[in-house]
Write a protein that binds this DNA or RNA. Sequence first.
DNA 1: AATGAATGAGGGTTCATTCAT
DNA 2: GATGAATGAACCCTCATTCAT
Lengths: 195, 195, 195, 195
Amino acid sequence: MDGFQRRKEQKKQNILEAALQLFMDFGVQKVAISDIAKKANVSQVTIYNYFESKHNLVNEVFLYYVNKASSQFEQVIHSDIPFPEKIKTLIFNKKEVASSINEEFYQYLMMEFSTEGNYIEKIYAEKAVPYLQLLLKEGKEQGYINKELSEEAMLFYIYMLKDYIQREEVYQKILPLTEDITNIFFYGIMGKERE
Amino acid sequence: MDGFQRRKEQKKQNILEAALQLFMDFGVQKVAISDIAKKANVSQVTIYNYFESKHNLVNEVFLYYVNKASSQFEQVIHSDIPFPEKIKTLIFNKKEVASSINEEFYQYLMMEFSTEGNYIEKIYAEKAVPYLQLLLKEGKEQGYINKELSEEAMLFYIYMLKDYIQREEVYQKILPLTEDITNIFFYGIMGKERE
Amino acid sequence: MDGFQRRKEQKKQNILEAALQLFMDFGVQKVAISDIAKKANVSQVTIYNYFESKHNLVNEVFLYYVNKASSQFEQVIHSDIPFPEKIKTLIFNKKEVASSINEEFYQYLMMEFSTEGNYIEKIYAEKAVPYLQLLLKEGKEQGYINKELSEEAMLFYIYMLKDYIQREEVYQKILPLTEDITNIFFYGIMGKERE
Amino acid sequence: MDGFQRRKEQKKQNILEAALQLFMDFGVQKVAISDIAKKANVSQVTIYNYFESKHNLVNEVFLYYVNKASSQFEQVIHSDIPFPEKIKTLIFNKKEVASSINEEFYQYLMMEFSTEGNYIEKIYAEKAVPYLQLLLKEGKEQGYINKELSEEAMLFYIYMLKDYIQREEVYQKILPLTEDITNIFFYGIMGKERE
DNA sequence: AATGAATGAGGGTTCATTCAT
DNA sequence: GATGAATGAACCCTCATTCAT
């Protein structure tokens, strides 16, 4: 890639990053192209040159986001901290860009791309599921996971926790409950200390 | 209330119901007042006569919704089915309007009314929390709940499950997993097969 | 006129008075029928029952105003204070409802009724001009007025002064200049002390 | 300024000119942005791009007007026709844009910008008063003006005449009276033919 | 006669997108 | 390739006026 190409790529990235931040903070619909242009220090038309339409931009921002997130995801899963720690990290580590996405953003994608054959679903399946499966396998081998539970149910559970806790309004209130929530996840509301 | 008043109330309710459905399906921002007017068979101005502004309408739709939801909520909790059934019903009964709310809707409210002192929070605290506490008390008395877990953590858990599962895109996929998810809720991912 | 009629007339007057005040303060176009209804404590429809349209209401308010004003006008002219005092009173007495009218109001009338053959003109001619002529006659007889000046020119002059000074923004600043302005009126800018 | 800039300025001027004419003819409130757009052959949005809001547009039209007017004003005052001619020209020359302003327009400005510290007043003081003072000085030196009259009173007088006569409805009727009105201005209603 | 309820038409403003340089 | 300028469509809201009781 020559210097020219690189500068071009840089500009594209600037736009994606600006859009991502704004979408996250204000939702897709409240953000105008002109807002993104201002934040990225380019003209509106440049955005159109790169992305053709808002529809398309939203899509590419989403892809950009998933990629960014999944590499962090991968890191945690391949690290050598114990299984329960991995779970806790995944669920509660908001600081790192999470593989979970702002809800309005998500809904917007679902509606806008719904004609295109559960597109997001596919992305998720490709980018997140395989890693989660690795994780679950590890959990089972180490005896942390009831082997009779279906994989789907657990995937759902982890995903839900992760996604829900990402929400700005939820996260702050939930932090002091980290231990309890982790406990419920592992042992249920009945608790482990029955014997 | 005379027939005159009743017809007026009826019309107001029509508008609220139309708005609620549209907000749920498409999100607040994508729905124009004219859409609601069409669906409720009234003129746009009538909506303004009743609700003064879109901002205000959103607020009243929210209240309407919370009330509708909380009475169903209450019914389940005061019914005399066993505790685990109540939990399952609460979490999976989407057909009945749930006390959970469409996320874009929720976010919109949070942003628009944020100046007004965590307004939604207050409504929820008043309308939902007391009933959930009753439920948890019952669960503890019947030995279903680990007494060492904080009430907040369990409230959060139930709430999250309920809210998350309500989502259209989630609900369908999750139905076959009902048993497993209930199990995880009660016994955690480690499972119950200890004794 | 029976009590019924009287009550009806009273209501009509309330509406006219409310409308007049609002038109004077905010201009015709900024005042909505609903504002007038509120101020007069009647329903909007009542206004329509009495006046048929806003156009018409404006007209009747104008007539109401001219009548009110011209009787005060008449009083001054028939009083037995000396001629120069009459002039001064006419020109500077803002407190009493003047025969001069708020400008936006005036312009509105001019435009709206322009098709109807210089309607306002006619009203003025009927209500104001005859009295002013009386006044000028008195002035001439007492030697205050150059007999070679046309009546029209003097009518115009008095009218202009009166009208212009009525304006809220002008009146306050002009008060300290009362003497000088009266002097200019009588003796011109060259002043009288040449001989 | 390159051709690009010039065309932009040209367009801005077109809008200002169109707005000015419409405001003068119909008043600010009766004129819709779409009317101005049509007259100036641009889209509504272009007007918003240049002026941001109607409020703002009104303001800029006013400034545009004052500037245009004051340069003509200046010309008359610096020309070398005799003093009485200058007065007559100033007062009766409607064809040239006068430094006087349509009244509804004026009132609108007064109300809308009243919070901003008698804004219009200030503009007038800067643009018109100095020239009038020059004129009065000339008049006094040439013996046309009674030196005992306050400057303010005379400023007021000239201003009033100028402003009032500008009005469309007034101007036509007043033309045949030009001589008489000028006479009254110089010699008062008592007339000069004493000596 | 009087009113609460309802409305069509229109106004200011914003936004995604295209044009022209 | 990049941009400033321009726009059609749509949205929220207001108002004079009419309907129905």
